[in-house]
Write a protein that binds this DNA or RNA. Structure first.
Lengths: 208, 208, 208, 208
DNA sequence: GATGAATGAGCTTTCATTCAT
DNA sequence: CATGAATGAAAGCTCATTCAT
């Protein structure tokens, strides 16, 4: 009996195999969409192209996503959760070793540099090409606010008016690292030097 | 009817009359497109709608613009030249009365506040909705660089490393005023207060 | 002046020529849709087919109709207005020469026979194939009620309980003539004989 | 394990067990489709939805039905056999107690009222939404003719021209009860009153 | 047999652009 | 030149059906 009962044991694997296949399909669709987005931009992103590039049929795409927007939602979600991970890490780093306001600023800037260094082409497409929906804007905004709050908390016992300062610090760090690393603007010096300068500027302000 | 001198004598006035009419048509099209863009956004901007709102036919529209993109080019150009005008004015103001680096910073921030306060809905559409072409990005970039150069010049005899400082000052002033005035992010305090704070931050940095 | 001013005079014809062309296009689309509906049924009726059969592009179709349903609306409208015309004629005939309730019944049945004899294939498609919208059902219902009201009025001074009798008379006359002329049911005798019998039945009832 | 008689002895029970399961699956599919049809209408009826609601896979559905239409065939068949059952019962009732033509008429009308009162939502979907095939129309027609024949037989020794009268009586009873109970037309009085009036009208005619 | 992921033809609709008038 | 009717490629999405597991 024991050696010849493939049924009980086999049934679950079948289901999980199917689930694996389904998950793989979802994955391949998202990857295709992500690649198209970062390689060719928003205008080239349509359901037929995604399906073709993913090697599946449009029907399959709509099996897993209710509409085109939903694919973008997932891409954005993943993108933002990378940001979240960086925030969590940053918060830990701050707790572990930030003794001065300058330390907090340094970690903040470094965090944004790292964030914007990862997959910059996708980042550009997402922030310049794609027309985000209201809900998506809110999601992006929520992440921003979370970073500001954490920064304010980290500065609370170190500076005056931590909430306002956190707002400027975060918005500036985000905007400038984004500009230098994502937009391909011509900068007189290297991005690293600029980041250093940025730390200086924000450090001065934090302590003011 | 002076049938003897139809060419030389008649044509110029005719042409300029025609040119006047042509210019008026171009104008009316641009205005219609601009209004649609700022009222209803990029998605609502299509050539038929533009023509209808402008009170001309699509055929006429294509008489004056080779394609849809060309209309957008003009809108962007005008938008950017407003920036240019503000710059020119700012340069004058600086020459006239900026004795300290803080003065330059104050004028810079005030300039960007003014820039972003004018027709913010159009500004938002142009910077968030509309997918700019490479060439258009370059044009935006050129304006940025011009501002940076002028700022650097204004700071030249007042601070150290004026070029680098100008880059950070301009990018920060632009990014933050844009964020507060154009994107509707939730800010803890008023935009005016933030602008004041921004001047403080940038002033500190300029003098560092 | 009078003999050589083609402009003033010519401009209107141009516009009306265009309007004529537009109207012709609308007409050709409706005719194509109607023919498809009566020849091949609702399932074969799609916008591409309609456009092809009409000899126009889908784009033109959507120039004149906001969506597929709107085409059907027009077809139904025209169909119903034929019914309305028949009603108007019937009301006149009744006023002119119906002295007895049997006269009213005879005119009623004859009217429905005529109504259902005209373009029976379209009639069949419209009443069997096409899934009518709520609004369309209401329109059909409104025509029914108008006929009932007119019949009740015609019977008012001739029979007892004219409203109720009108309801039965109209619904019966409609249903049976429809069944015999539109649905291709096998009837033991000719439709004409059946109509005669129907008049007998309804006449008996009207006078009861 | 009786290895010597695997065929004859074992197979029959197995097959009938299988048949039982198969029948249950067919049943569950039909029920699901019927419920969807009467609850959400023809437009909501698609094979995937049916399978999901039935708790089986689409694959299984296609194991038991060659195509979507076949499911509808069964639903229609069952619907019609309810009509047949009512007819059989009616025929018995007529034999048992119909002594006059009016009795026959009364039973006929009551039968149609009962027929149309049972699951009117399904009835409506089947008669208004679903596009019946030619074959299905023929089946409906066959039932109609059977009722007419039975009615004619019941009237044979009571009235003149029983065949023709049966045609009008049946078609009228069907059409009017359908209209009042299935279509939601605005009627001046209750369906019961109308049914009574209908009996009066048909009784008059039957005896004419 | 049962499963349900995968398929893809086909549908409705949009809109930048053309061209006969 | 002006007009606006006409075009048709292309997009998003559905669903009856198939087939690998």
């Amino acid at each position: 009996m024991t050696s010849s009962t493939p049924r009980q044991g086999a049934r679950k694997p079948v289901r999980s195999a199917k689930q694996k296949r389904a998950k793989a399909t979802v994955e391949v669709i998202i990857e295709a969409a992500t690649r198209i987005l970062s390689d060719q931009g928003w205008d080239a992103l349509n359901t037929n192209t995604i399906a073709r590039r993913a090697g599946v049929s449009v029907g399959s795409l709509y099996e897993y996503f209710p509409n085109k927007q939903a694919i973008l939602d997932v891409i954005l979600d993943r993108h933002l959760s990378k940001g979240d991970a960086l925030i969590a890490q940053g918060a830990k780093d701050v707790q572990a070793g930030a003794t001065t306001a300058q330390d907090v600023v340094d970690l903040l800037v470094s965090g944004f540099v790292r964030l914007h260094s990862d997959d910059p082409k996708l980042h550009r497409a997402l922030s310049a090409d794609v027309p985000l929906s209201k809900a998506q804007h809110r999601r992006v905004e929520a992440v921003r606010e979370r970073i500001i709050d954490l920064t304010a908390a980290a500065l609370a016992d170190k500076v005056s008016a931590p909430a306002m300062k956190a707002t400027l610090l975060v918005d500036t760090a985000d905007a400038l690292t984004h500009k230098w690393l994502i937009d391909d603007v011509g900068t007189p010096v290297s991005a690293e030097t600029l980041a250093q300068e940025l730390k200086t500027m924000l450090g001065l302000y934090a302590l003011a």
